Computed example of a mutant assay.
Amino acid sequence: MIRVSEPDFNVADEIALLEADNSQDGAVVTFTGRVRQQNDGHDVTGLFLEHYPAMTEKSLLGIVEQAKEKWRINRVSVIHRVGQLYVGDNIVFVGVTSKHRGDAFAAAEYIMDYLKVQAPFWKKETRSGQDAWVEAKTSDQQKAQQW
């Protein structure tokens, strides 16, 4: 399941969906990303995320398909919020199920790493009353290249 939307998600509900009627998988790995108060030495009060819907969903589907080719995984859930968010708000959820934990951990990390560098989201932080577009980090690019 892939969802890009403004409304918040409930982590417990998303995990329950991954586990529902799923007795074949012994591993459920999840990651939740949230808006943090500091970024690159700046105090952050908010984050605004924009995207191009058709391109974003296609990109996320491609990342999930690549993960399915690399590891033996079953269910995958990727949720990414857009719009105005504030410190502490959920931004992203990645959940992966597999028979074994190694595949689930690797696939979840891969999806998150590639989501950071390939998915077309544009982020604008509010820092002390001023807005600043957030550039992709070199460290994120390097992490994705390791795969």
Rank of each mutant, 00 (worst) to 15 (best):
V87D: 03
R75S: 04
V44N: 08
S98V: 05
G129W: 03
R3A: 06
R101P: 05
K124S: 11
N39G: 10
E6C: 00
I2F: 14
Q37D: 08
H80P: 09
G83V: 11
E50N: 12
L18T: 09
A132K: 13
F31A: 05
S5L: 02
L17V: 09
N39E: 11
I63Q: 00
V92C: 12
R34M: 03
G62R: 11
K99N: 11
K137G: 02
G62H: 10
E109S: 15
L49H: 02
I79G: 02
G88T: 08
R36S: 04
E19W: 02
D103V: 03
I73E: 03
H51F: 05
A12V: 07
D8G: 08
G88L: 08
E6H: 04
N10A: 10
D25F: 05
V64T: 11
A144D: 01
G88C: 04
V82E: 01
D103N: 12
Y114G: 01
K137F: 05
Q84F: 11
R36L: 07
V96P: 11
V78Y: 03
G62K: 09
S59R: 03
E135N: 15
N10I: 12
K99C: 11
Q141M: 09
T45Y: 05
D43I: 13
S5E: 13
R101Q: 09
N74P: 00
S139T: 13
A12K: 08
G33E: 06
Q38Y: 14
Q37E: 14
R101D: 00
H42R: 15
D140P: 07
K137Y: 00
F31K: 08
N90M: 00
S139K: 06
F48L: 12
V96E: 10
T97L: 01
F31H: 06
L60A: 05
E65A: 15
